[in-house]
Simulated scan of single mutants.
Amino acid sequence: MKVLKYIVVLLIGLYTPFVFSQNEDSLRFVAKVNKKKIAINEVLEIEFVFNKEVDTFIPPKFENFTINQGPNQSVSIIWEKGVKVFSKTYKYSLKPKVIGEEQLIGNATIEVSGTQLQTEPMHISVTKKRSLHRANKKAKSAIKNKVFIVTEVSKNSLNELDSLTVMHRIYFPENFEMSSFSEIRKPVYKHCIIKSEHKKQFTVEQTEFRGSVYRSIVYRQAILKPEGKGEIKVKPVILDVVVDVPTGKKDIFGRYLRVPKTIRIKSNKVSVNVVK
Results as ranks from 00 to 15, higher is better:
Lys37Asp: 08
Lys37Trp: 07
Lys37Glu: 13
Lys37Val: 13
Lys37Leu: 10
Lys37His: 10
Ile38Met: 11
Ile38Arg: 05
Ile38Val: 11
Ile38Phe: 03
Ile40Gly: 07
Ile40Asn: 07
Asn41Asp: 12
Val43Pro: 06
Val43Ala: 10
Val43Tyr: 11
Leu44Trp: 08
Glu45Ser: 09
Ile46Pro: 04
Glu47Thr: 04
Glu47Pro: 03
Glu47Met: 08
Glu47Cys: 07
Glu47Gly: 05
Glu47Ala: 11
Phe48Lys: 09
Val49Arg: 03
Val49Cys: 11
Phe50Asp: 06
Phe50His: 15
Asn51Ile: 03
Asn51Asp: 15
Lys52Trp: 01
Lys52Phe: 04
Lys52Ser: 03
Glu53Trp: 01
Val54Phe: 01
Val54Glu: 00
Val54Asn: 00
Asp55His: 02
Thr56Cys: 01
Thr56Ser: 01
Thr56Glu: 01
Phe57His: 03
Phe57Asp: 00
Ile58Thr: 15
Ile58Arg: 02
Ile58Tyr: 02
Pro59Tyr: 06
Pro60Leu: 15
Lys61Trp: 15
Phe62Ala: 10
Glu63Gln: 14
Asn64Asp: 14
Asn64Val: 09
Asn64Tyr: 08
Thr66Phe: 11
Thr66Ser: 14
Thr66Pro: 05
Thr66His: 05
Asn68Cys: 08
Gln69Val: 06
Gly70Asn: 09
Pro71Lys: 03
Pro71Arg: 01
Pro71Met: 03
Pro71Ser: 08
Asn72Asp: 14
Gln73Cys: 07
Gln73Ile: 13
Gln73Ala: 10
Gln73Tyr: 10
Ser74His: 12
Ser74Lys: 15
Ser74Glu: 14
Ser74Gly: 14
Val75Lys: 11
Val75Ile: 13
Val75Asn: 08
Ser76His: 11
Ser76Met: 13
Ile77Val: 14
Ile78Val: 15
Ile78Phe: 04
Trp79His: 04
Glu80Asp: 15
Lys81Cys: 03
Lys81Phe: 01
Lys81Val: 00
Gly82Ser: 06
Val83Gly: 03
Lys84Pro: 03
Lys84Val: 13
Lys84Trp: 04
Lys84Leu: 15
Lys84Cys: 12
Val85Leu: 00
Val85Ile: 10
Val85Thr: 06
Val85Cys: 06
Phe86Cys: 00
Ser87Leu: 09
Ser87His: 04
Ser87Tyr: 02
